[in-house]
């Protein structure tokens, strides 16, 4: 469905995306992770055809993407998207009139479920509700690819939970390829199926949550017992206090020797260790 080949995007002397190749074939909710400035928004804008790549190509459903050839099957929603200052009901009705395959019933169901007042004007809504409305409008059409750039930015915990529910309900109603960029890893993990992790414009990892559960773990115990094990494993970070250490592993599962415990790594810890790549002593 999406094929990115040797993609590079440079802004003057800064390389935002660096020779990135990635193929996404399956429908699903993909979580795009990366630190601030890792290139997440640039990648989304390139996918939407908003900006031109310096090198490399993107094809979506076999069609080459560029600013002069923006794919209509892609819907890109930025955080804080603007709408006309009309009543919620009017905005939804207008969106339905402008789109051939707009699911008005789904939109109303979501508006009711997330307690958006149809009589309120857009500017009268809170920041979170504005984003929610824009997302409902976008999710109610049948675009094959949805790109959501930090959609929960500025949301409180309850709003974030509601938003994740909305996303999941939409995906159930219309299975498609949804890419969500966020920093709130553990929250999105409840609904996402696959992760794309980028750093400094490079692809670090594209994997499923099952693979992560299986391959991301922490070994804890005496340093003298753990150090020999690390020679054969892909260690992404360590924490050492005196003669005791914890080693964060992303590799095949092993059966630890006596004196060494093994436990699953949280997604947050996995991300920090993978991207942070640090060793604390």
């Amino acid at each position: 469905m999406i094929e990115i080949t040797k993609l590079t995007k440079k802004y003057a002397n800064v390389t935002a995306i660096d020779n990135l190749s990635l193929t996404l074939q399956q429908e699903g909710i993909y979580c795009l992770l990366g630190r601030n400035g890792a290139g997440k928004t640039t990648l989304m804008k390139l996918l939407a055809g908003y900006i031109k790549a310096t090198q490399g190509t993107i094809t979506i459903e076999s069609k080459l993407v560029s600013p002069g050839n923006m794919p209509e099957s892609v819907n890109f929603i930025e955080s804080g998207s603007q709408q006309f200052n009309m009543k919620v009901a009017e905005l939804v009705e207008t969106a339905a009139a402008l789109q051939d395959d707009f699911d008005l019933e789904f939109a109303w169901e979501m508006i009711e479920r997330f307690e958006l007042d149809p009589k309120k004007r857009f500017k009268q809504l809170s920041f979170g509700m504005k984003t929610m409305l824009t997302t409902i409008i976008s999710l109610s059409n049948n675009s094959k690819v949805m790109l959501l750039d930090e959609p929960t930015l500025g949301f409180d915990a309850i709003m974030r939970d509601s938003f994740n529910n909305l996303l999941y309900r939409s995906y159930q109603a219309y299975p498609r390829l949804i890419i969500v960029s966020t920093h709130l890893i553990d929250e999105i993990a409840k609904i996402t199926e696959r992760f794309i992790i980028i750093d400094k414009g490079c692809l670090l990892l594209e994997t499923s949550i099952d693979e992560l559960d299986e391959n991301a773990y922490t070994l804890s115990g005496a340093s003298s017992l753990i150090h020999p094990l690390l020679e054969q494993l892909n260690c992404i970070g360590t924490t050492e206090i005196g003669s005791v250490m914890a080693a964060h592993i992303y590799d095949r599962r092993i059966t630890p020797p006596e004196g060494v415990s093994i436990e699953n790594m949280s997604l947050q810890d996995f991300f920090i260790n993978l991207v942070g790549g640090k060793t604390n002593a």
């Binding site: 998207s81 603007q82 709408q83 006309f84 969106a95 402008l98 789109q99 409008i137 976008s138």
Partner: peptide, 16 residues
């Protein structure tokens, strides 16, 4: 200046 993006956010096509 201001209606283009808002119209796009309602799902309209550019030609529309």
């Amino acid at each position: 200046t201001s209606h283009f993006k808002k119209t796009m956010n309602l799902g309209a096509k550019r030609i529309t």
